[in-house]
């Protein structure tokens, strides 16, 4: 079964839109309620005060996902460092993807970008499982500077999805700034699926790409994580030093 992690700043009232909980219906969902504390505050101190309220909110969310037909559970973490917490819980639950909630109504069409580091195969099989036999269309998107090679790989991916009976379109952005092209393409779609990116200088300066996509596109973004087995080979596992 495929697991999606949904991290939410639970005590700041972050929640999921009905469109997202329906979209994630066929998946196993772990709702990660987290609360980021300033360094003046020991996490345990915050837990004593907020645990009950946060747990109640999480129970409600889990019920919402289950009402949409999915299997859901929750974790609650008090932390000083959001990113570290999401990485750790994603690794512990062996989540295949995580969600940035965003706002959307019913999802009719997904934009799936295969630009990036995560293998196209992995993204496609995630999308196939996500869509299942539902009436959700998929637009495959690739930004590249190699037109012929790009077309070939995106067509191949499109065929694989069509075999599952999914309505697929493809969109190739050649020699365009990838980020802007993706945001442009996102306008007619209700949610975005993308692969996670290894940290880079760019992400250090502008913030993580997925976060930027989410804030530009408003709708939910599902980020497919690197295959844990493949990632450890490349030394991508979250390190525990400093």
């Amino acid at each position: 079964m495929t697991r999606v992690l949904v991290p939410l700043a639970i005590l700041e009232g972050e929640s999921v839109s009905s469109g997202l909980s329906t979209l994630l219906g066929p998946m196993d969902v772990t709702v990660l309620g987290y609360h980021v504390l300033p360094e003046q505050t020991p996490p345990d101190q915050a837990r004593l005060q907020y645990e009950d309220r946060a747990t109640a909110a999480l129970d409600d969310l889990v019920a919402e996902f289950e009402a949409a037909g999915g299997h859901a559970d929750h974790r609650l973490v008090f932390t000083h460092d959001r990113e570290q917490t999401v990485d750790r819980v994603a690794a512990e639950t062996a989540a295949d993807a995580y969600a940035i909630p965003g706002v959307t109504g019913p999802v009719d069409r997904l934009l799936v970008t295969v630009t990036g580091d995560v293998a196209v195969d992995r993204i496609c099989s995630f999308v196939a499982e996500l869509v299942g036999d539902r009436e959700i269309g998929v637009t495959l998107f690739l930004a590249t500077d190699d037109e012929a090679g790009g077309r070939e790989s995106i067509e191949a991916a499109g065929e694989r999805l069509s075999e599952h009976g999914i309505d697929v379109e493809t969109e190739l952005a050649v020699d365009e700034p990838p980020f802007e092209a993706l945001i442009d393409a996102a306008t007619d779609h209700d949610a975005i699926v993308m692969g996670e990116r290894a940290p880079s200088l760019r992400s250090l300066i502008f913030g993580e790409e997925a976060e930027r996509v989410a804030s530009e596109s408003v709708g939910p973004v599902l980020v497919v994580r690197e295959d844990p087995a493949g990632a450890s080979e490349r030394g991508d596992r979250p390190s525990d030093t400093t």
């Binding site: 345990d44 973490v77 008090f78 932390t79 030093t241």
Partner: peptide
Amino acid sequence: PQVEATIETDEATITDDAELERTLGLSG
């Protein structure tokens, strides 16, 4: 006294309903 059973791992303290992330490294 507020006392609860916890499990300590290298990365977090796990209580019944919640986890407390350990975020300080050696340099910190």
